[in-house]
Every structure is written in C-alpha cells, then in structure tokens.
C-alpha cells in the first residue's frame, strides 16, 4: 500500500525491459528513417544518404534534404504528437477507448478544414489553420461543458463524444452536398496524409511540440498516480482534477497541432498507447514509449504507402491497416489485466 506498489521500476528486470523497449523503438525509428530517405524514384545507398546529411554536395543532397527529409521529419513529429496525445487521454480519463477521434478533436478539426476546402475553396495553409482552430475550439467547448468544480473522466469522455457526433454530422452534411471530386479531396485530407510536407510546416509544428512535450513529461508522474484512483492520487499529494485537466488540455493541443499538419491520421492516437503498454508490460502510462510507437507507426506506414503499394495512397490508410493487426496480435499474445 505504499508508493513501492506503483514503482515497479525498482525491480531490475523491469528496468531492463523498459530500457530494451525504448531502445528497440528508437532503433526502429532510425531504421525506418533510413529506409524513408533511401527509397524513391531515385534510389540511394546508406552511404549516399549519410553523405548527403553531413553536407556532401551533389544530386543526393537535394533529394535527401529537400524532398525526403522534411516528409520523414514531419511524420516523426506527427507520430510523436498523436502517440503522446492518445496516451494522455487514455490514462488521464482512465478509459481505454479515449482518443482524439473519440473526444471530437479530430472531428472538430475535420469539420473546420473540410468547410474551408468545400465552402471556401481554399487549401494548404488555410486548411492547416482551420484544422488547428477547429481542434482547439472543440477543446474549449469540452472544458466549457465538462468542467464543473473539477471534472471526472467520464464527463469529459461523454462530452467529447457528443461534440464528436455534432462535428461529424457537419462533415457528413458538407460531404453529401459537394461535388464528388471535392469530396474525394476532403476524404484524402481526413484520412491523414504527409503529402503537403515541407520544411516550413516542420518549422511550425516543431516548436509547438518543443513546448508541449516537456509539459507532458512533467505530468507523467501525476498520471502514474492517477491510475490508482483519484483518492489515492490526492492522498499522495496530487490534485487529480488538475492533473486530468492538464493532461486533456495537452492532449487536445497535441492532437490539434498534428491534425493541422497532416490531417487526423487514422488509428495512431488510439493504438499507440495500448501497443506501448503491452510492450512495456509494467502498468505505467508509458508516454515516451507511446510517442515512439506513434512515430514508428506513422513513418513506417508512410514508407509502405509511398513505395510498397502499387498506387500512392494517403498514409492514414496504411496506419489503420498496419496498426490494427499489431494491436490484435499483442492482445492475443498477452493478458490485458
């Protein structure tokens, strides 16, 4: 009944496993990154890629640094943001089904972005800005509805679902009343795609994450305690409603930022945390591991989407197709409790 009960880190085997999982994920991220920079119409060797990265001038430099790197880096940022955001939602709300899709952030961003596209005829940066605004607006609405002398996870989640359906019906309305070609463009955006990657986009998203992720790290200990229940967390000196409110706020902001950059890439935020938790297997929220799983999922899916499939498809199609079997396989292998 002491803190020891929730700090299994003291056991060497756990530490070993945590380290191994994190190291393995980082290695996977780098390996996928290598592939992402090598593959394409103009195939490069590892040596050429490394050379280009350290500054060798030549044709490889342009391909790697100007074309492929921004896309890969954007994938990393988006995966990180979605992965951490999902873990924040699921642990703070204590509901394994919570994710930006369930809480309405994705739908809010989609409604705003699709409206910009279908009604205003704008695309690119306008959609990005609209999506960010839509996501944050949903967050504000969530707080307005659910905050009442603090809040419970249930109340947040249910409010989010209500908002999600509302925004979803706006999207449905727009989609059914637009030209089919425009609807297809909107659908591509809503599937999630790294197609509009550029260094400028990275320069916007990067600093945002640089602010938000350390804040999430600060919350990690509090979230760990929150797992034990509000009363226990309070008795250990954390105000549960503050931790939860902060976690949801960060989750909304992270998801909004990532959605603005790449669209609501399907399934990443939902699946990253359960996959990470089952890899770690020690009952901790695993924010970092979730982020890394998100990165692997997005970047690997993008490699598949760009190079291994006969047609070029948006990355969101592959994240669902790739992530779902992984999650099911992990569930089948391990006890969930």
């Amino acid at each position: 009944m002491s803190v020891v009960a929730i700090a299994p880190l003291r056991l060497p085997a756990r530490v070993l496993r945590r380290t191994a999982v994190h190291a393995g994920l980082v290695a996977a991220v780098l390996a996928v990154g290598c592939l992402a920079l090598m593959l394409g119409d103009y195939r490069l060797t590892v040596g050429q890629v490394l050379g280009a990265l350290v500054g060798d001038p030549g044709p490889a430099h342009f391909v790697v640094v100007e074309l492929r790197a921004p896309r890969w880096v954007l994938g990393v940022l988006v995966g990180l943001a979605f992965g951490v955001s999902g873990a924040l939602f699921q642990t703070s709300l204590r509901n394994p089904l919570a994710s930006p899709d369930v809480l309405g952030v994705s739908q809010g961003a989609s409604a705003a972005a699709v409206a910009t596209l279908l009604v205003g005829g704008a695309s690119g940066w306008a959609m990005t800005a609209a999506a960010a605004g839509g996501g944050v607006l949903v967050g504000v609405l969530l707080y307005a509805v659910a905050w009442k002398q603090g809040t419970t996870g249930q109340r947040f989640v249910l409010s989010g679902i209500g908002v999600a359906y509302l925004a979803g019906s706006v999207v449905g309305y727009l989609l059914t009343r637009s030209d089919v070609r425009d609807a297809q463009a909107a659908l591509t955006w809503m599937t999630g795609s790294l197609g509009q990657s550029s260094w400028q986009l990275v320069q916007v998203l990067g600093p945002v994450l640089l602010v938000l992720l350390p804040l999430a790290a600060l919350l990690a200990r509090g979230l760990d305690l929150l797992q034990l229940g509000d009363d226990r967390a309070a008795s250990l000196g954390r105000r549960p409603e503050v931790v939860r409110g902060g976690a949801v706020l960060l989750g909304v902001l992270l998801a909004s930022a990532a959605t603005a950059a790449a669209g609501p890439v399907a399934f990443v935020a939902f699946a990253a945390a359960p996959i990470a938790r089952r890899l770690l297997g020690d009952g901790t929220p695993g924010l970092a591991a979730s982020g890394l799983v998100g990165v692997v999922l997005v970047t690997a899916s993008d490699v598949v989407a760009q190079h291994l499939l006969p047609v070029d498809v948006p990355v969101g199609i592959v994240t669902g197709a790739l992530g779902a079997p992984v999650l099911i396989w992990l569930l089948a292998r391990r006890r969930t409790s």
Partner: peptide
C-alpha cells in the same frame, strides 16, 4: 482495431 482496418 477491426473498424480501423475496415475503414482503411
């Protein structure tokens, strides 16, 4: 997970 797969 199945829904994600089908949606893809």
């Amino acid at each position: 997970a199945f829904s994600a797969l089908a949606t893809s």
